[in-house]
Design a protein around this nucleic acid. Structure first.
Lengths: 245, 245
DNA sequence: CCAAAAGTGTTTCAGCTACACCCATGA
DNA sequence: TCATGGGTGTAGCTGAAACACTTTTGG
């Protein structure tokens, strides 16, 4: 950071890529766009685009998401979080592109009106074989984003970002189950969540039917807390051993 | 990511910044360099520099660290981990600079031979008032890096990255205490570490004096595990409440 | 009545905290 | 001998897992 010369180096293009998740119909879904041009024409890719000269990466991420998928930040309920930056020199065959990746969570999936830029946009089930390999290194980015979200559910109150303003504890539990791919004990989950001050707040008197059948469930709002002490650990992958790479 | 034109946008400079931590003499220290030029001449800053057109950010980070501080990756014992990317348009007064920040941990601090680029390099105590505000937004980067490292100690085996190849459990415990700024019960810490398979491996027969006094301590090596199940939680900051922003 | 989901109670067990206590060494 | 840090033992608490049970709805 000592010797500066604006033109001493070949210019870098800086882009953003977004892995936007939601939970719909009991499944984890990702927002993908179909590429209309080479390279990777016809392949699915993460939404994203160039960072403009006067904007921060996060600003660019919100703008591109709206432009490309017609999905704006409705009611400010879009949770956006920087994932990491991918900078391998050959990750784009045409030029040097450094991409700042974001993981995003949205509660209810509004309709996707394929925006100005992209040929097609759709919420596809995460991990599905329906969309082959993604363009560029987007498979890796998507996988990293999924890992990050799964981990953050353990020690933050992030799960409410998948839920509408008013939700039941069963819906909140489904977020954990769908992201982790496991089943949780409803009784223990309930106690754990309610025992964490500020995770959720009950809406007095309100209740709603969920599965069509069953007792109506009380409604809750997201509380002000952001972190979980102690954390809500997912069942150990191995039989309680230190994980090796 | 649809319409490409290499010169359609003002070029971005892409740099790396490193927050390199070590534990020396019972204190957490950071590697800083003194700036020789404007802006912020004479101020302390994180080591870092430009990413070259043909290298990934992590490669650039290792190279700059060696060039600027003369501190190479001795024995491959440098733990380097991407933190996040800082891209606010005004973070450098001269031009648009997007910086990929890294957190790094090293075991024993070899001498720092202020390298080619920097005026001076030194290991300064973290949080000390000795170095005023850092250049650019480096105070924030350093703070973010400290948070990240502190958090990762809880649920990964990262602490061994601060230790030499052979270390005692007291030294390992000191890493936690120094980074978290708390005291830990030696007995319980010992049991917890040994109960996690793959965290450390005892070196049979070896022992060493540590504080000059006291019983010689057994020596251990880092094991192959990377994550901690269940985690080693630090004492809650508040009286066991969900943390609010 | 039955199925399904919400919600409560209870037993059991693992893990953590706290603290007492012994061991080996230098001063 | 005392101070210091390593290392072991143990009683008690907390919280999570597992599972039985009640409640309230739709079919």
């Amino acid at each position: 950071m000592q010797g500066y010369d604006k033109h001493a180096y070949e210019p870098f293009a800086v882009t953003v890529d977004l892995a936007v998740f939601t939970v719909r119909a009991g499944a984890l879904r990702v927002l993908l766009v179909e590429r209309g041009q080479e390279p990777y024409a016809g392949r699915w890719a993460l939404p994203g685009g160039f960072v403009q000269p006067d904007e921060a990466a996060e600003t660019a991420a919100r703008r591109e998401l709206a432009e490309e998928t017609g999905f704006g930040d409705v009611d400010g309920r879009l949770h956006l979080e920087q994932l990491r930056t991918y900078s391998e020199p050959d990750r784009d065959p045409r030029m040097r592109v450094v991409s700042v990746a974001f993981a995003a969570l949205v509660p209810d999936p509004p309709e996707v009106s394929g925006g100005s830029d992209a040929a097609r946009a759709a919420w596809l089930p995460y991990g599905s074989t329906a969309y082959g390999p993604l363009a560029f290194d987007h498979d890796r980015i998507l996988s990293d984003a999924h890992d990050r979200v799964g981990g953050k559910l353990e020690y933050t109150c992030l799960a409410t970002a998948f839920c509408p303003p008013e939700f039941t504890l069963g819906e909140l539990r489904q977020v954990y189950e769908v992201v982790w791919g496991t089943e949780l004990d409803p009784a223990n989950f309930r106690r754990k969540v309610l025992a964490t001050p500020g995770f959720v707040e009950q809406i007095p008197g309100a209740s709603r039917l969920t599965g069509g059948r069953g007792k109506p469930a009380a409604l809750y709002r997201a509380g002000g807390a952001v972190s979980l002490h102690p954390p809500l650990l997912r069942p150990a992958p191995e039989p309680s051993e230190g994980t090796r790479p």
